[in-house]
Amino acid sequence: MTKVAAVTELALGYDPAQPILSQVSFALAKGQSLALVGPNGAGKSTLLNVLRGAMKPLAGQLDYSLNPRRDIAYLPQASMVDRSFPVNVRQFVSTGLWNQLGLWRGFRCSHRLQVNAVLEKLNIADLADSMLDQLSGGQFQRVLFARTMLQQSKLMLLDEPFNGVDEATVSLLLDELASLQRRGCTVVAAIHDLEIVRSHFERCLLLSGEAIALGPSREVLVADNIAQAWGETSSHLKPVPIEKEPASRYA
């Protein structure tokens, strides 16, 4: 299998004395999918930021066998898009062609076809002329995803791509991710829904201050590992029943 990237003994965070995450090592192969799982603050987003080159690791090594600027596409958890800006969906999605077009090159028929194809795939062709501020949350996530797909990257980094998105959109996006992988795109995604990880991601990296487990998703996401990541009293495993407040408290 062709290796796309390798991470060795990575430590990340803002303060070298207190790294958010340390001792992380893994390799990414072409067409593979890796889910990053862990409680809030486990360092999933930070790891994605380091992988895409927006942040330097505190220690460790990060080796790519691709061009990070050209070949990595990133979908942030909360996008900073100014949705009141007066462009329509087609124009917005076209910005995913930046690597092909840059400042100068002309927008040709072939580019238009690429944009149309990705809009069709994500079922948003009928929204092509809508303005960004007319879209619902799910529709906008599809639009963002369309732009990310248009980059034709070799490594796709997704930060909680299914948060606050309707089920139809989730299953559509998962199908598209699977087809991207078949075409050789590697996918790394921070996901909090363990069911999605179990059913759709080959490998899983469980994080909580350090790498707790790495391997096939079904083997990693077992009760012991989850307990270790979320702590023994985790609500994941032992949901605390809601107790009735004693009436005397308000008396």
């Binding site: 927006a54 990133y74 996008s79 898009v81 462009v87 910005t95």
Partner: peptide, 14 residues
């Protein structure tokens, strides 16, 4: 346009 629309995205290209 892209800087106004989504500066974070543009910065990922340099």
């Amino acid at each position: 346009v892209l800087e106004c629309l989504d500066s974070e995205y543009l910065s990922s290209f340099g």
